[in-house]
Design a protein around this nucleic acid. Structure first.
Length: 205
DNA sequence: AAATTGATTCAT
DNA sequence: TGAATCAATTTT
């Protein structure tokens, strides 16, 4: 991973680390970095502080529950790609596809802590008033990073515009990890498949 | 608490 | 062809 302004010690997360059950993979993504770069814009990046697991055909709350459709086909593909969908007709939400090729699974990115490119994030989120409003929700973080439906299916493991990286920061452990039910769903509402970093003020509310 | 907003999906 | 359902955000 190289390029102007790219931190030299950031290494893309390899796909094999994402090939497990989303419930195993999701908490391990806490602390990793999501970065977006393009030919025209400065790098924008944030640290993952809140995630939710969606278990595909084994999870009635997953878009993939009823099998592959044009919308959900990337969730049935190989791990390490991006599943982007439109929410409530106006927001984009981004998921890291995980589990094995052919088995649907995904981790919804619910909140990031802004790291790099914060000026561009303010411009992309004019209604945000405080730093902790910038990416403290799944729709907010897509707007702040400039992720849209055009990024659906993108490879996150190195070559593309959106990358999930490890910058050497250890994930939260023990009492620093919050766990509870997922937000905004109507099925499987009691499954505790949401995780967040208790030390962060950038989680959703 | 309520308005906003449109794609997707499944049932007629 | 129609209606229900939203992995949400913002303002009141």
């Amino acid at each position: 991973m190289t390029g102007p302004g790219w931190p030299g010690d950031w290494v893309p997360v390899v796909a094999t680390a994402l090939e497990g059950d989303p419930v195993e993979v999701a908490p391990r993504l806490l602390g990793r970095v999501v970065a977006r770069r393009s030919a025209t814009d400065a790098i924008r990046a944030g640290r993952i502080v809140e995630v939710e697991a969606y278990r595909g055909t084994r999870d009635p709350a997953s878009h993939a529950f009823r099998g592959p459709t044009p919308r959900t086909e990337v969730m049935f593909g190989p791990a390490g790609h991006l599943y982007v969908y439109r929410s409530y007709g106006m927001h984009w939400c981004a998921n890291v596809v995980c589990d094995r090729d052919g088995t649907a699974g995904a981790v919804l990115l619910r909140a990031l802590e802004p790291m790099i490119g914060i000026e561009a994030m303010w411009e992309a989120r004019p209604k945000a008033r405080r730093l902790r409003d910038l990416m403290s929700g799944p729709g907010k973080l897509c707007a702040a990073l400039g992720v849209t439906g055009d990024d659906n299916g993108a490879d996150l493991t190195g070559a593309g515009q959106v990358v999930v990286c490890d910058d050497g920061t250890p994930p939260p452990t023990g009492g620093d990890v919050g766990r509870g039910p997922r937000v905004g769903i109507s099925k499987a509402v009691d499954e505790p498949w949401r995780w967040w970093d208790r030390r962060s003020i950038h989680v959703s509310r």
